[in-house]
Amino acid sequence: MSTTVVNTGTEGKTWGGGNKPLNASYGKMMMWFFIVSDALTFSGFLAAYGFSRFKFIDSWPIADEVFTHFPFLHGVNAPMYYVAFMTFVLIMSSVTMVLAVDAGHHLNKAKVTLYMFLTIIGGLIFVGSQAWEWGTFIKGDYGAVQTKGGNILQFVDTEGHRVALRDFVVADSHNERTQHERKGGLWFVSEGTLPTYTVEEVVHGLESHDNVLVRTQIINEAGEKMVLSRAESLRQIKENGKVVVEGANLHVNEYGSPLFADFFFFITGFHGFHVFSGVVINIIIFFNVILGTYERRKNYEMVEKVGLYWHFVDLVWVFVFTFFYLV
């Protein structure tokens, strides 16, 4: 066995092993490469969003009119303020994360613990806000009518302010249909929640309110949605109205193209899932810090690695914020 080769004679050379050509540890480098691939996944989603938007460039929902709510402020038109707040929370938690990394370089366990804790809190606030944002979006506000061709007709008054269905439509209590549940008939058939109103009731409501007009999805030269004349409004609803839509889900969307809701759920959902997993990983590292694992290792590089992931999540949000809410 004395002839067994134990070394290759390339020690000390660049590819001889044992050195770090990129001056980064294996773990950190792999985190970077994971981030590259994840960034490409997100760009795929955002580019697909761009594709669908360019496809319906003249009828895409205007984000300012979709996300207008702020918690505890009912009926206040507050476009984007809440998302801006969410963005700030995430940037802030990125800052506490990088402060934790910095404290780790100084082997300051108490400070790492504190900053990791603050980062986790920031992440939780963000995920909670995201859930609230989803809830508001799903619940909807004004309601709309979907046409046979799948377009959305919304309602405005003569000054162009949005009018909710509940403000001019009266539900006829005599012909109310109950939601079919499995226990009430065929056990293998069920249906979703029924809209509060039927299309006929909307037609009656529209006929008896002279000041209500229909607004289409089409965006005009001034960047506003086109409003139909009174006669045209009645005609469109009567001839083409098919379903009353309240809120948004994967099939219908009272704000406009169903694709908008699909991409909203998919992209913010995927990002929210990243934030959630980031929080879980942060919690694991947080406990490791408390237990003194890295103190004994004399090296807080694990904090740095999760830090990279956490900043990446923030980075993605910056783009989601721009392409969903601003542009």
């Binding site: 960034a39 490409l40 761009g50 594709f51 496809k55 460039i57």
Partner: peptide
Amino acid sequence: TTIFLILYLIFILLQEGGYVF
């Protein structure tokens, strides 16, 4: 790497979206 691939992807998809429009 990332920037090159993203620019490529965006170009292709937006071009195609505009065409479908």
